[in-house]
Nucleic acid binder design. Structure first.
Lengths: 342, 342
DNA sequence: TACTTAAATTGAACCGGTTCAATTAGGTAT
DNA sequence: ATACCTAATTGAACCGGTTCAATTTAAGTA
């Protein structure tokens, strides 16, 4: 493998000049630049990433870590939504030749060790966090280390300027309004796991929506799910076993909504007639489920891109342009899983 | 940030000794090791990844690149299956403190440029390829460069020992047998895009299954899809518009199968009674669709782990243990989307 | 006590880039 | 011809690890 010194020798210039050519400095005479470029071509030279990183202190890599969370022993599978997020991030990353590196690790002690490792060994220039938990230790640590990071979601009273979120509460309010206007008075709530930070925010939206529409909240119609289909199914059976079952179920993600629809159908009931179901996320399948799912859509691909841009600005210590605001409005997509109660 | 020289000074040893301690060499006296470890602790020292990479020529990072393919102008969205693959890879990677770096780039010229960049700049130690296309230029290039890579899938007559695949043809044969045994004589085939290498292999399985069961193949019942729900829907409408429509549709992934079910239901027909549907992949939603989808299951999480182990062995030039064979048997999961024809 | 051998430690050289103070080349004004 | 200024180029020092031949220390043996 040729090094920069080989190129310098071949082109009969110094290594400094080659470096200047590589980094687009304007200091180099055109004729010299040509000679260097020809040498690079002739030797098929490519700068080594590690050497460059060592002297520039930049890796051109950002990181993302999935916390493997287990509830009652079973792994919470990754939401298809995350894949869309990854898609958005990587499609923005490619244009600034930055890579996205992934790790997956069980939440807990080893998780913090990984974060510390990455930060102190400078393997990455910045981090994208998502699915924050209550009193998430990761945020405290990264802040303390002044390590660049952005969050998909909010954390503790919206402080900081390094997050982008969807106003889930507003989305849920809209969903509740939609259900109430259809005539539903018994609306069940399939909650996210209580560890998640967003759980509180979402709940506020539900409470506000219910109170605005004068629908009473029945504690018997609340169930804590874990974002998997299975818990949507379990929660729904629990609801329908109540003496006074709900006519509508709001689910905090689409996967639980799919599980809910399945449970309703397993009892010989019709989704959208006997029981209405609303989801959250609008994953690509929501449009194709049977019946098509009414759900709250978030512009996840756009969010991925925006998070990336925000992080890069943070890393470069450039002024932050929030690209249309940090709190994005979600949109209620009405399909056939909701209808008037019988 | 402290460097290895700071640690050496603090512990009153040489940098060589510190390095030996860091790398678990047995040459260091226990007492010295303790002193060094205390110094590391006291200074909160962590080796810099870039410096280490520069001298070891290893990055402890492997790469994966998603080819953004457009058909008739629209992007083929990433399959949820890929997320499971990533999950499997990263869960294996974490135990050897290796990261997985992800890029997404449109197939074509820029794509090859990215591969060349990564290989020659040694940003990664190895690559995981998937969704190979006919005469895929990536394989030729990587082979020529002798760069370590493994493939999820096969390529050109199974040559090489760096791939792991599911025997999709066998899976399809089983699916066709299942349908024929139920009494179906008109079985439609929703094909993968023709550019994909697996398209040929899968087709062979379909042909063999049909011929074994003495079911004729009708050219009017073949449609080329693109793995998205939409094309499943379009293909199904095309099939059902035929003068002599099929009673069963085999779809080459679950997403197209979901689209197919939707199209069938949109015409007031009942899936599993009027028209049976079989998918491929067994994504987590398949169990929760309405009706639950009969599909071919591949152990994708296991495959991710196996691909990682294989790649690491390749990188370390260690003998390859194929962990239970390179061609894995898929399993037909029979659910309610298939039944006897009316 | 001297000699041999094994164990532990040392530190300069190296990996391959970037940076910047110092130097040289080229051009213009006096 | 000389002084002066700007543009272009140079190359040693640096980034922070690993490696290994050379050296020192400790243990074992006669």
């Amino acid at each position: 493998m040729p090094t920069i010194r080989d190129v310098a020798r071949y082109a009969q210039v110094s290594v400094g000049t080659v470096s200047n050519v590589l980094n687009g400095s304007t200091l180099v005479k055109d004729e010299t630049r040509q000679r260097v470029l020809m040498a690079i071509e002739a030797l098929n030279y490519h700068p080594t990433a590690a050497a460059r990183s060592l002297s520039t202190q930049r890796t051109n890599t950002i990181g993302m870590i999935r916390s493997e969370i287990r509830l009652q022993g079973n792994l919470i599978e990754t939401d298809p939504m995350v894949l869309d997020l990854i898609d958005g991030i990587t499609s923005a990353a490619i244009s600034s030749s930055t890579g996205l590196t992934f790790w997956a690790i069980p939440a807990g002690e080893r998780e913090m060790a990984l974060y510390k490792q990455l930060v102190t060994s400078r393997q990455i220039d910045g981090l994208i966090l998502f699915a924050l938990r209550e009193k998430d230790p990761r945020v405290a640590y990264l802040r303390e280390q002044e390590f660049p990071f952005v969050i998909f979601g909010r954390f503790e009273s919206d402080e900081g300027d390094n997050w982008i979120d969807v106003d889930g509460a507003a989305g849920i309010e809209a969903a509740v309004r939609h259900l109430a206007e259809l005539g539903h008075h018994r609306i069940a709530y399939l909650s996210p796991p209580h560890e998640q930070y967003l759980t509180g925010l979402r709940w506020q939206g539900f409470v506000k929506g219910m109170s605005d529409m004068n629908v009473p909240i029945d504690p018997a119609l609340i169930y804590e799910g874990d974002f998997n289909e299975k818990s949507g199914q379990l929660g729904t059976h629990y609801f329908l076993d109540q003496p006074n079952p709900p006519t509508a179920i709001f689910c905090n993600n689409d996967r639980m909504a799919f599980g809910a629809m399945r449970a309703i159908q397993a009892r010989g009931l019709v989704v959208g007639q006997d029981v209405s179901v609303v989801g959250f996320d609008d994953v690509s399948l929501a449009r194709y489920s049977n019946p098509p799912l009414t759900t709250i859509s978030q512009p996840i691909h756009h969010i991925g891109r925006a998070l990336f841009d925000l992080l890069i600005n943070l890393i470069n210590q450039q002024p932050i342009d929030l690209l249309g605001g940090k709190l994005l409005k979600p949109e209620l997509i009405i399909r056939q899983s909701t209808g008037m109660p019988r």
